[in-house]
């Protein structure tokens, strides 16, 4: 927390009673360590990401240790979470056998996205590190490689790309239009949409929360006394959106993982 304190203090100083509109600058705070180093520069979001990773690893480790044939409360809860990825995401899409094989990949994606999303509503952290492009892009790349690998494993290199780019059925002339479309949708739009969907959701969530909390701050302290009552409304909205952001954090993790398994399933089944 020590490193966050100056930034927090600076923020409090500038926002005393004023309305600070959220902006994209929020996601690119100044670096506080290794400044200028291409590899190790750290800023507020880097730190939030590291904290999320450490806490997630801790939870995963303790959860794995608590899992038993006859589980206790913690083990049961953690097993439900892994079981949700295994049964509700992978199992329904990939079937019982493949869902076991792809569970490590899908569970990694699910827990990573969830942990890095949820920091957006955690007090003091207050930002989701998935709102920077690097994390969603990396995860989308992993998903991208995973479904291509699944397709190649199932049909061979030639077999997979032939089935992906030249689906059987239409007359030969149609391929002039169809093949570019298929290429675009499968190999460009899939990773792009995975990245942007997650990133945009987290950015907009942060904007909403900052807007309502900042508005409350302004209405309560800075605004004329006739307006102070409205701060109750804006604070209520801020709380409601906090709850909504928790839901979105889980939902986006679910969607990202579900789409990854759907892409893998499509690559395996294509012929």
């Amino acid at each position: 927390m020590l490193v966050v304190a100056p930034a927090l203090a600076a923020r409090l100083a500038t926002s005393e009673g004023g309305f600070e509109a959220p902006s994209l600058d929020d996601f690119f705070p100044p670096a506080f360590a290794f400044n200028g180093s291409n590899f190790f520069e750290l800023n507020r979001l880097s730190l939030v990401r590291i904290i999320a990773t450490v806490l997630l690893v801790l939870v995963l480790w303790l959860g794995a240790r608590a899992m038993r044939v006859v589980p206790g409360r913690g083990g049961n809860l953690f097993e439900m979470a892994v079981g949700f990825v295994h049964n509700s995401i992978a199992g329904d899409v990939l079937g019982p056998k493949a869902s076991r094989r792809y569970l490590p990949l899908l569970a990694t994606i699910f827990f990573t996205v969830l942990a890095m999303n949820i920091t957006g509503v955690v007090p003091l952290l207050n930002i989701a590190s998935t709102s920077l492009v690097s994390m969603p892009l990396l995860l989308a790349l992993v998903a991208f490689i995973a479904f291509i690998a699944a397709g190649i494993k199932e049909h061979g290199v030639k077999g997979y790309f032939a089935s992906a780019l030249f689906p059987k059925g239409p007359p030969k002339l149609i391929y002039i239009i169809l093949t570019p479309i298929e290429f675009l949708s499968t190999f460009v739009l899939r990773p792009a949409t995975l990245t942007i969907r997650l990133m945009a959701n987290m950015i907009s969530g942060h904007f909403l929360l900052v807007a309502f909390f900042s508005m409350t701050n302004y209405l309560l302290i800075g605004a004329a006394w006739t307006l102070k009552g409205v701060s109750v409304l804006s604070f209520g909205a801020a709380l409601a959106f906090t709850a909504f952001e928790i839901f979105v954090a889980v939902l986006q993790a679910y969607i990202f993982t579900l789409l990854t398994s759907v892409y893998i399933s499509l690559a395996r089944e294509s012929h």
Binding site: N38, F39, R49, T53, V57, M67, V142
Partner: peptide, 30 residues
């Protein structure tokens, strides 16, 4: 939409650590 290098490094490192725990510990135990 173009991440700086340090951000990529950190993302890869975080994901690698998480993936290691999930692949080596969580999923096998589960």
């Amino acid at each position: 939409f173009i991440p700086p290098l340090y951000d990529i490094v950190l993302s890869v490192a975080c994901l690698a650590v998480i993936a290691f725990v999930v692949v080596k510990k969580v999923v096998p135990t589960y």
